[in-house]
């Protein structure tokens, strides 16, 4: 197995190709399949369900990498809150499944496909190729623990963090203003 994938996999896990690799393969397969399902399904509710499955399998992938905090935040925020809201809205609208979402065949789809392929190549070059150097799939001790994350957020990245929270506050106030015209 030569090439990017063979070399990368062999170097990532030289000794433990058994359990962890199998787990990774299963989770990654579920993630990819559900990701395809999000786009492929005609029914919006099915697409949302696929997105939920995708988020969950991503969270489990984070767990296998030792980033438990990130994984659980993924479940709490995306799966537990945002997707519930998505489903809520979808059920309120009650979209008629096939007719409303039929697309016409035109050249723009070709362009979109080309753009997607370019983006994929870009991601592979930027993110996956450097990983060939990676020697161990294990993170350093305390990497990604709640304590380390909190410390980083409130010391090193305190300005971006606070700016993001102000942005969210503006969003909340704005949505309330939009929803309640007469204050």
């Amino acid at each position: 197995m030569e090439g990017i994938w063979g070399a990368g996999v062999a170097q990532l896990a030289p000794t433990q190709v058994g359990g962890p690799m199998l787990l990774f393969a299963v989770l990654a397969a579920v993630a990819v399949a559900s990701g395809v399902g999000v786009v492929a399904f005609n029914s919006p509710v099915r697409s949302a369900l696929c997105l939920i499955a995708n988020f969950l399998s991503l969270a489990l992938l984070y767990f296998t990498l030792g980033a438990e905090m990130l994984g659980i935040i993924q479940v709490v925020v995306y799966t537990g809150a945002i997707m519930v809201l998505f489903l809520f809205v979808l059920m309120l609208l009650n979209l008629a499944a096939p007719g409303a979402l039929r697309e016409s065949r035109d050249l723009r789809r070709l362009g979109a496909g080309a753009l997607a392929a370019a983006l994929f190549v870009l991601v592979v070059v930027q993110a996956v190729l450097p990983l060939q150097e990676a020697a161990s799939p294990q993170a350093a001790d305390y990497y990604g623990t709640p304590m380390a994350l909190g410390r980083a957020l409130f010391t090193e990245y305190v300005w971006p963090f606070e700016l993001a929270s102000v942005l969210l506050l503006v969003g909340i106030v704005g949505s309330i203003l939009l929803a309640k015209r007469r204050v």
Binding site: M69, V75, T79, G80, V84, L87, M91, P146
Partner: peptide, 25 residues
């Protein structure tokens, strides 16, 4: 005994909504 025990509780209890929402839909 993971170091995110309480967050795990929050995450799983938030998944409880899906059974109800999906059965309703």
């Amino acid at each position: 005994d993971v170091n995110i025990g309480v967050l795990y509780l929050m995450a799983v209890s938030s998944l409880g909504a899906y059974g109800i929402i999906l059965s309703g839909y």
